[in-house]
């Protein structure tokens, strides 16, 4: 696991832009959850595949994502 992403879920507007830029395709919309704005927030289930490239965070219009590298 090279990287770890955390989502400030209540800032997410469910626009899905982040899901289109993850090189390892692990950023998905969390269909089990609704955030304060009423959207499915973005999330990562298979964190171990994350390479901490930061693309998802850079594509996000709402600074929802924080990316850390181990």
């Amino acid at each position: 696991m090279a990287g770890k992403v955390t989502f400030d879920e209540n800032r997410c507007k469910g626009c899905e832009l982040c899901t289109t830029v993850c090189p390892v395709k692990i950023v998905v919309m969390d269909k089990d959850k609704i955030n304060i704005k009423g959207y499915h927030p973005a999330t990562v289930k298979e964190m171990d595949k994350c390479i901490a490239c930061g693309s998802c965070a850079r594509m996000c219009p709402d600074v929802v994502i924080k990316v850390e590298k181990l």
């Binding site: 990287g3 770890k4 800032r11 507007k13 469910g14 626009c15 899905e16 832009l17 959207y39 901490a52 490239c53 930061g54 965070a57 850079r58 594509m59 996000c60 219009p61 709402d62 600074v63 994502i65 924080k66 990316v67 850390e68 590298k69 181990l70």
Partner: peptide
């Protein structure tokens, strides 16, 4: 854990009113 990316201090805490996916937020 080294931080690769986090919210800049140049932005306030206030969430934006822009529509979902509007790239104003990125700019």
């Amino acid at each position: 854990m080294a931080v690769v990316f986090e919210k800049t201090k140049g932005l306030t805490e206030k969430p934006t009113h822009y529509c979902p996916g509007c790239t104003h937020g990125i700019i």
